[in-house]
Amino acid sequence: MEYGRRPLLRVRGRSVAWLLPLLLLAGVVVADFATGERLRMISWIVLVPGISSAICGTWTTAGYGLLAVATYVLVDSAWPEQYQAGLGDFILVAVGGALATLAAAVRVRRERQVVHIRDIADTTRRTVLRPLPPDWAGLEQAGVYLAADVEARVGGDFYDIQPSPHGTRVLVGDVQGKGLGAVEAAAALLGTFREAGYHEKDLATVAERLEIRMLRHRSHTVALGGADGDRFATAVLIAFPGDAPQTLEMVNFGHEPPLAVGPRGVRELPSGEGLPLGCADLAGGLLPPVRRVPLATDETLLLVTDGVTEARDGPGEFYDLTREVARAVRADPRRAAPHRLVRRVRDGVLRHSGGRLADDTTVFAVRRLPGGGGPPGDLEQGCLRY
């Protein structure tokens, strides 16, 4: 298969796109002899390379162009001279084959560009949303990101887990707006989280570093002539203290309130009154407080972006996350496991919205591993000692 060609008409993993033009060629030949001398159909063979240019590669299309010309000559020569289509139709078939080959070359080149752009988007996504082990830093986790623009494959939603000597930290957020500007802001916040989340003991200091980073990023973008002067990000910053297995610390920057999901049901954690990252000046520079919230060891923490809660069905009804999760867990308590919970919410949102996402959608779930999995900072400190 030529590079860049779409995998159309595949059977058992192998492309059979070449078969359709061949069948068309055979059909034109049969039709030409079947209709007789009063209606010559052989000039229709120009459609063969035309069809090939839409579904086959450049060289395959060129081959069909030559085959169409050769077939035209052989079939037309088989008729008596007075019934032959002649030079005019021969030129039509030859020029049609050449134009079809050119069209195939342009299409394949465009598809190569699209593949290259998708590779760049996938690399960007892996950089911003780095792959996370399913069991890491004392947590079991699962996450899914769905871009509203399926071609873009990347947007402003972000999440990450950062082990540290002071406990495991989690960040989930959503940058306002779309496009590369939102991606750049998300990458800036994640970079700061990965450093401050590891080094800073106090979660309030991590929150302050995130606020400062958002302001610095915004200022830098504006200085470059960008229009990001009012960009902000909602986020939830979570800490799982190593010395308090039944509690967590949380700072909510105007984000959707997390849900605690367990065998006893679903409960909504405090949403907080905090403003989004980049908006502290509207509150006199005050940041949201750090709240200590109880979380049982058998409960899963579910965090989503507004692509979930603002998903609408045909009549315009919003997706009721709490109700749907509670119903699923009542039917089967095992669905509170992170990977099952994430899959349930993802499928529910897509089903509710008919697959038409109005905004980027992130579903992220974490819960403590039995026994805690060991101190989360041991591995990284061990590497530093060497």
Rank of each mutant, 00 (worst) to 15 (best):
L139Q: 08
V325K: 04
R312I: 15
L302E: 05
R126V: 05
R291I: 15
R327V: 12
A62M: 13
A85F: 15
L20G: 06
L237A: 06
G373E: 07
A182H: 07
S77R: 03
P134E: 14
H166C: 09
G371S: 01
E2F: 09
L47P: 06
C383K: 06
T127N: 02
L295G: 04
R292N: 08
A337Q: 15
G4E: 03
D76M: 08
T124S: 10
V48T: 14
V128D: 00
M214P: 02
F193M: 08
A207K: 03
A105I: 03
G242Y: 06
F232E: 00
D313T: 10
H217C: 07
P245G: 05
L87Y: 10
G262N: 07
A260H: 01
G278Y: 06
I161A: 11
R110C: 07
L8W: 05
A85M: 14
R112A: 03
G274F: 04
D76G: 03
G173M: 09
V114G: 01
Y198N: 06
A311C: 09
F240V: 12
T124A: 14
R126T: 11
G181I: 15
R194D: 12
G63V: 11
F364T: 12
D243T: 14
E273G: 07
D320T: 00
P49L: 09
A142H: 10
L248R: 04
G225P: 00
S52C: 10
G13L: 14
